[in-house]
């Protein structure tokens, strides 16, 4: 079995930070290289999850839209009905589906905003938080601080 891509990236980042960066005397170039090292490290840590996170996000959005479908306008219901979420497709297709679902979700959110249903509003914000947690890399901010020191 071949070494995985994320392992390769992680080792590259560590070599950049600990082996090559200290050899550079120019302060600007060294800081810039350190930033690259940290960003490659973050990429390595998120690399394996990128496909599954996107697939999970698409599922979460369409499931929620279908679950709450009856509360929307006719046009929006029609759009939701027409969405097809395919499984096992390439990441670019998954990305396209994600953009389509996000656009529908924005329309749904506008309609939810006009209602007095606090629970529905809370549920929608929970969905947005779940989506954000699938993608965010800001939890790895500590890696940047280490690279900077």
């Amino acid at each position: 079995m071949k070494p995985e891509i994320n392992i390769a990236l992680m080792n590259a980042a560590q070599e950049i930070l600990t082996r090559f960066s200290p050899l550079i005397e120019d302060e600007y170039e060294q800081s810039r290289l350190n930033s690259w090292g940290a960003l490659i490290l973050i990429s390595a840590m998120k690399f394996n999850q990128s496909y599954s996170s996107l697939a999970e996000e698409n599922d979460s959005i369409i499931n929620w839209l279908r679950k709450t479908k009856q509360t929307y306008s006719k046009d929006l219901i029609k759009e939701i009905d027409e969405v097809k979420v395919e499984e096992g497709v390439e990441q670019t297709i998954l990305d396209e589906q994600n953009q389509l679902l996000r656009a529908i979700l924005v329309k749904a959110h506008k309609e939810v905003d006009l209602k007095e249903d606090i629970e529905l509003k809370k549920e929608l914000l929970n969905l947005l938080r779940e989506m954000h947690s699938h993608r965010k890399v800001s939890d790895l901010i500590g890696l940047l601080q280490q690279a900077d020191s």
Partner: peptide, 11 residues
């Protein structure tokens, strides 16, 4: 890309 959280904030 489309960002629903940002759109909600702007509205």
């Amino acid at each position: 890309s489309i960002e629903p959280i940002l759109e909600a904030g702007i509205r």
